[in-house]
Design a protein around this nucleic acid. Structure first.
Lengths: 348, 348
DNA sequence: AGCCGCACAGCAAGCGCTTTCTATGTAGAA
DNA sequence: TTCTACATAGAAAGCGCTTGCTGTGCGGCT
């Protein structure tokens, strides 16, 4: 049998109530008593029963973090930052909290199931990272879940995700549209007029917003876009590789390729190289996110830096109630254009 | 007030016991009754109280995954694979489980604290990934914790981590020594005789084993190693960059640089390039792990592929009792040498 | 026809903790 | 000295669920 509170109480010659109070430190206990209790805890190697404690106190120390793909540094960086702020071991806040990182794989069902699971665990807070699905039914379902969570006292924070109105969720949204626009304007400023675009999966807010920014830049400069210049694909390297080959097949006169994110851009670089094209002499390439490896590409990738760690940390603090929520419950986090070697003037 | 089992029971006109049995499906319930209960659950939007359930049943559906750095794909890939196998949403196994990914940051204290937290939550299983600290006291403490966990019925699996004898933990260990040896033998076979080595942080099993493999290869070929040829540093890009500069300063005649992992190798490549050296014409570079980005380096990185996803998946299955543990509780997972463009013959 | 046994459903006793309320001892106030 | 007030400690009532045990009604057996 495992050691219970009662065992500790017996050993310390006090009541279970006192042991509980010593452990929680939320009630005056005489120093001598406390010491006796702590000694007993130590001797018996007692470990609190989490579920029992959560049940009785009607609170839990679990914090959920939903990510699309845990193997993708984009999410890993945010998740790590959130976790470092929620007062887990090593965090400054008292009260140790357990971060639960849930991998949705970007599918609507798993996202909902995980939200239910977290609701079931009576999580103290939930942070949702990354773009949302644009499916109407799914958005409604998620919104309903979020509302129930916030109503039950769970703090919900969206990090790098569009706001969810009327749910009580706090949103720290990335300015994907603005970043996309700035990036493409940089290329246009370099003289490019024929730009291919490798978009992410359809029905994702991130995909749509970045693409909209790109198109806004083209429109602002009176560049008419050829429908063949846009290809959709997954957010991974291979998709970028294939999309680039497709793009160059459709129109070999393109002088620049803008990718939906850095991973895709890396695939694009590989495809161009394998096609015997030089970067940026023959074709310029640009990404988005500025993940750590992007600076190591050869040439280094021109991209839009998203302050993932900062945003994640802020989301974590807001989730813990350690930082005030932005006014209106919505904050926009801007990206920063990083001009590097992969972009240059168009070949003449 | 939130909806409870009793509310559902009242609405469905049955006893709470019956509702519980319908929800758990572990006891015969007439189809008509089941339907009535399910309907009530749906109408009331009932969500089981996890802590209460865990307390009463003395089991939990939490599975802990300890990683050193969640932002590092090395761990992200393993964690994702574990998670996909533990029967979370979308997994094949019935019974939804919540994966808890804990970021230890590679520090002993956080590792221990997280283990305690998981013990407190009465986790169903715990998977520890990555190398262990070599600190004697810490190892003893961890071993004691692991023993208590297994004794309490928690399944403990070590993934990419050396075995922990007498703890009841199952180990899937990476053959870091063998991989390191093979890699260096490849370079020796190419004709290199003056090889620099960028090791990871001291006091880590991974660091030591890879270095031992490297030295074994040198010894086997009668190459005497100059102490100046080894530099220790963190497992990140910057450390690799700086270590490489230091290495080339100490001995500019080195013809190859072996890094403790791919991330470090990328830093090494950058340092060499910035020093005006060509890869592999002037200096060959090799890494370890074969992370996804390694193939995108220019030139592509010669490295040792570790089957991270496969090992993680297997660890997950073993943790869930869905796959038998290896005989003796220990399995060695071998790496595979991937010869790519970053290694070539030494400059003459 | 009488009996056994099976298929269900309900009762009620906890699971191990938190917390309210009450009891006690002691110090300071009157 | 007597009363009030404070500082602690304990008793006990749950928190919401699971599950062993106890009914109950019915079909099939002899």
């Amino acid at each position: 049998m495992t050691v219970t509170l009662a065992d500790v109480a017996a050993r310390a010659q006090v009541s279970p109530a006192t042991v509980s109070r010593v452990l929680n430190g939320n009630y005056p206990v005489a120093a001598s008593t406390r010491e006796r209790v702590l000694k007993a805890v130590d001797e018996l190697d007692y470990v609190l029963n989490g579920p029992a404690s959560a049940l009785a106190a009607a609170t839990s120390d679990l914090v959920g973090i939903l990510v699309n793909d845990i193997a993708d540094p984009f999410f890993g960086i945010m998740a790590g930052a959130v976790q470092s702020e929620i007062g887990g071991p090593g965090g400054r806040a008292g009260g140790e909290r357990l971060a639960v990182v849930c991998n949705t794989g970007g599918t609507p069902e798993r996202e909902l199931t995980y939200l239910t699971l977290l609701q079931r665990q009576r999580a103290a807070a939930v942070v949702l990272t990354g773009g949302a699905m644009e499916d109407e039914a799914h958005q409604t379902a998620v919104a309903a879940k979020l509302r129930r969570l916030t109503e039950a006292g769970t703090r919900v924070v969206l990090c790098g995700r569009p706001p969810a109105p009327d749910t009580g969720a706090i949103a720290l949204t990335f300015d994907n549209r603005g970043g996309g626009r700035e990036l493409t304007e940089h290329l246009i400023g370099l003289g490019h007029r024929r730009l291919g675009y490798i978009a992410g999966p359809r029905e994702r807010t991130t995909t749509r917003h970045r693409l909209e920014g790109h198109r806004a830049a083209l429109a602002a400069h009176g560049i008419e876009e050829d429908p063949r210049w846009t290809v959709h694909g997954r957010y991974d390297r291979q998709a970028g590789y294939e999309a680039t080959l497709e793009l160059m097949r459709r129109d070999p006169t393109l002088t620049a390729v803008v990718a939906a994110n850095d991973t895709v851009a890396l695939g694009a670089c590989a495809a161009l190289r394998d096609s015997g094209l030089r970067i940026p002499d023959d074709v310029s390439v640009a990404g988005f996110d500025d993940l750590p490896f992007s600076i190591d590409a050869v040439p280094a990738l021109t991209t839009v830096r998203l302050p993932l760690a900062e945003a994640g940390a802020r989301a974590g603090r807001v989730a813990m109630g350690r930082e005030e929520a932005p006014v209106g419950g919505i904050a926009t986090v801007r990206g920063e254009l990083m001009v590097r070697g992969s972009s240059g003037g168009p070949r003449s």
